[in-house]
């Protein structure tokens, strides 16, 4: 079950891991951006500009991670979206 043999670790496990990962990565990147902005503001006394900038940067970074993850899955399933799913692409 949880020790996939080489070459046999198809879809399910990979998808489980992805579904457990993507959402939280998005959220935590946003919050890290927010926190960085907040503390930089506090340190440099430029409230609220750095907060806004870093919040936006955090959101962008989160979406970029999700995009990269999607690309990785696409490469793994053979280049076509939905190639692992026999019902797709009809």
């Amino acid at each position: 079950m949880f020790f996939p043999k080489q070459g046999k670790h198809s879809g399910a496990l990979e998808l489980l891991y992805v579904s457990g990962t993507i959402g939280l990565q998005l959220v935590s990147a946003t919050f890290i951006g927010l926190a960085m902005g907040y503390f930089l503001d506090k340190w440099l006394g430029t409230s609220p500009w750095l907060l806004v900038v870093f919040l936006i940067l955090g959101i962008v970074a989160g979406f970029r991670d999700v995009y990269r993850e999607a690309k990785r899955i696409q490469n793994r399933t053979g280049g076509e979206p939905g190639a692992g799913d026999p019902g797709a692409g009809k």
């Binding site: 939280l24 935590s28 990147a29 890290i32 960085m36 940067l57 970074a61």
Partner: peptide
């Protein structure tokens, strides 16, 4: 951007 997303990794690992 990469710094933010790298710092987000331990946070998301912990929280998950």
């Amino acid at each position: 951007l990469e710094t933010v997303s790298h710092l987000a990794r331990p946070v998301s690992l912990t929280l998950r």
